[in-house]
Design a protein around this nucleic acid. Structure first.
Length: 718
DNA sequence: ATGGGTCCT
DNA sequence: AGGACCC
């Protein structure tokens, strides 16, 4: 995106279908050139590069397969993995006996008394295995700037464009090994025994191909045979990755290969388990025809419950009245959605950005990049559900339990020894890790508990009538944290979310008490106690401001009507370095917001201006935007952004080094008007509205008496 | 429904 | 802080 491509405004109204990543991207540059002469030029697309090669990988019935790695006696058996009263997933053997994913445990047992239940509420093992798969794949494609994105625990998106094209370049330059009509695809730049795979040069794809007649008739013209062969080569790479996951980790996968994420994911589920599918359309009509096979728009990633229900509502207003409810009504088909919702309709319902995106999705257009999953997550949270949790002590007790288990997770996932986890060779280290891991896990059989129908005293759970049913739980033996292990990330914020019997979630957040990081001097119980204290404070005494009008979260939540239904605790805002002490929040609230917000507001215009011209005009007209003016404004913004070059934050940098006070330039007259604003005690220049706090809590924003002690406690309202 | 996650507004 | 999406 470095060079600004000249925009040919003369491009005819051509086709709103012609495409960001539709059929234009299926044409080689050469073919595009030809097409440009005969018809009109496709709108220049600024953004996702065309011609991407995307693999979507799906781990087959992941919870079941992962459980089987821990407990081989589950192999070949009907297995259901339960979370509370539901089956999160079940084995294919169970499905053959009539068990359905997401059915209630009671239903499943009725249909299949032999069903073996596995506890899936503690995700530790699944999370670890999932991360291992991600690291394995990233280890292969990473060196080529390949991107690997995790979606949930059991799906990956992989962008292998660079990797495949590098191979093809090497092959054109005669740098690859060939033998009897076969070529070696070397997947690691300089591996000792060459890592990679052989493929034949006949150009036959591996696995299934859609649309069905797509590969049979190989007309030479459109789309370009080069692009087709790149996709076909990608099927070999996909198989290689899947073989790797199977041999190194022991999981089978399904995969889809296409030129964008949405289509790759769609085809990956067309042939299931342990199969792969290539999407190889010859035209935009092929794409649309393929999508029209879907009876439910919800199959398209991006169409969720809220969107579909809003669409159905809007449809019901003009056609039938019975569209009110989600569940009972028949699904909205892709073809109906496309015909009934022209662009203007979608942008009216959902705004320009989302509207345009959905409009594209209905035509198979998706320029969303594969976003590499970072080494550490952006947030870590735990939650549990209840049946009307009431009473301050009862709630406090649960809070302690949840706090302790959050701390266990933070220690497990955010502590380590610096460079430890990176790029281990697939050979020994992985094997060691594998065996190590599994030895520490033990099975415990617990009686089955299900949410009770009749109100019970704890408000939690009641055993179902048949006491003989057991649930297999797998737990890791706790091991001592090694001496060299230190925090790699520090969550600066903790957020409490709750749900009452009735309504939606509400949440609020505050600074993380810093002594939870003191693993050497404080026991987990002690640290959990402190965290739980902060959380109870959040629950009881309303929001950060004093006179908050909407304090629905407080008081009555503990005693009133229905009690708590859900508690979720999240650790977020993960910094790379340990904060010195509690930051002054007011400082950031005052200083930080403005520039970033402005930037974000301008994004809408930028994306609007990047659209194909006809769509841009249509949306602009609908919103009364004068395009010429906006082009000038955005252009100026882009240039000034280059000038300043000071990007600043990038989340951690802001928080890292320093207590916040020096972050504001004290020498700037705009900020500090007179020397009377310099603190008489410590000499730090302070904005007027902070003088009071600063006097109470010099420098670090905590009371001075706490600075000497080993652990500065939270400096919140004392 | 569950026990998580992501990004956008 | 809440809402949408994903699994």
């Amino acid at each position: 995106m470095t060079t600004k491509r000249s925009r040919s405004l003369s491009s005819a109204a051509a086709d709103s279908n012609a495409p960001q990543n539709g059929i234009a991207s299926l044409l080689s540059p050469k073919a595009q050139g030809k097409r440009r002469v005969t018809t009109s030029s496709p709108p220049p697309h600024v953004g996702a590069p065309p011609n991407r090669l995307i693999i979507a990988i799906d781990l087959d019935s992941f919870y079941v397969s992962a459980s089987r790695l821990l407990d081989p006696s589950l192999i070949g058996q009907p297995v259901g993995v339960k979370q509370k009263g539901l089956l999160a997933t079940c084995s294919y053997e169970a499905r053959a006996l009539g068990v359905r994913k997401l059915s209630t445990v009671r239903d499943a047992l009725r249909r299949c008394p032999a069903l073996i239940l596995v506890d899936g509420e503690d995700l530790t093992w699944y999370r670890r295995l999932s991360a291992k798969v991600w690291r394995l794949v990233r280890g292969v494609v990473g060196p080529w700037d390949g991107k690997v994105e995790k979606l949930g625990l059991d799906e990956l998106f992989v962008d292998v464009t660079e990797m495949v094209d590098a191979h093809i370049r090497g092959r054109e330059e005669g740098k690859t090994r060939e033998d009897a009509g076969r070529v070696f695809f070397q997947v690691a730049p300089d591996s000792e025994p060459e890592a990679g795979f052989w493929y034949d040069t006949l150009g036959k794809p591996i696995g299934h191909v859609l649309p069905l007649d797509s590969h049979a008739s190989s007309s030479e013209d459109t789309p370009s045979s080069t692009y087709r062969s790149r996709l076909i080569l990608t099927t070999h790479l996909a198989l290689h990755l899947r073989n790797l996951i199977h041999s190194q980790i022991g999981l089978t996968t399904s995969a889809g290969i296409a030129h964008n994420k949405v289509l790759a994911k769609l085809v990956s589920s067309r042939h299931k388990p342990a199969k792969q599918t290539l999407f190889l359309p010859r035209s935009a009509e092929d794409v649309v025809r393929f999508l029209d096979d879907e009876a439910d728009v919800r199959a398209i990633m991006g169409f969720g419950g809220a969107i579909v229900s809003k669409m159905r509502e809007s449809l019901g207003a003009t056609s039938s009245e019975a569209a009110a409810n989600d569940d009972a009504s028949p699904p909205l088909s892709v073809s109906l959605a496309r015909k009934a919702f022209p662009l203007a309709h979608l942008t009216t319902l959902f705004g320009p950005r989302l509207g345009i995106r959905l409009h594209g999705l209905l035509r198979g257009l998706d320029d969303e990049e594969v976003a590499p999953t970072p080494l550490y997550p952006l947030q870590i949270s735990i939650e549990d559900t209840y049946r009307g949790l009431k009473g301050q002590e009862v709630v406090a007790e649960q809070m302690r339990l949840l706090a302790a288990s959050l701390l266990r997770r933070l220690e497990g996932e955010l502590m380590g020894s610096g460079a430890g986890m990176l790029s281990s060779e697939p050979g020994k280290a992985e094997q060691m890790e594998k065996q190590d891991d599994r030895g520490k896990w033990q099975r415990h059989d617990m009686p089955l508990f299900l949410p009770g129908e009749q109100g019970n005293i704890t408000g939690k759970e009641a055993p179902i009538s048949d006491q003989k049913v057991i649930v297999r739980c797998y737990r890791e033996r706790e091991s001592d944290p090694s001496e060299s292990s230190t925090w790699q990330r520090y969550p600066l914020t903790v957020r409490l979310s709750i749900r009452h019997g009735w309504g939606k979630r509400t949440s609020r957040s505050t600074a993380m008490p810093l002594d939870i990081f003191d693993v050497r001097t404080l026991s987990r119980r002690e640290r959990a106690e402190r965290l739980a204290g902060v959380l109870m404070g959040l629950l009881l005494r309303g929001g950060p401001g004093q006179g908050q009008g909407q304090g629905q979260i407080s008081g009555e939540a503990l005693l009133g009507g229905e009690g708590l239904n859900l508690i979720n605790i999240a650790a977020l805002n993960l910094a790379t370095r340990r904060p010195a002490a509690q930051p002054l929040r007011t400082f950031f609230d005052a200083g930080g917001g403005g520039a970033a917000r402005q930037k974000r507001d301008s994004v809408d215009m930028e994306t609007l201006l990047q659209l194909p011209e006809d769509i841009r005009r249509e949306v602009a007209a609908q919103y009364g935007i004068v395009l010429e003016e906006q082009e000038a404004v955005v252009g100026a913004e882009q240039e000034s952004r280059l000038d300043t070059g000071c990007e600043e934050d990038e989340d951690d940098a802001l928080w890292d080094d320093l207590p916040p006070i020096p972050a504001m330039d004290p020498s700037s007259p705009a900020n500090i008007a007179s020397s009377s604003l310099v603190c008489s005690h410590c000499g730090v220049a302070e904005a007027p509205w902070l003088q009071h706090d600063h006097a109470r809590w010099p420098i670090y924003g905590v009371p001075a008496v706490l600075l000497g002690s080993a652990t500065a406690s939270e400096g919140s309202g004392a």
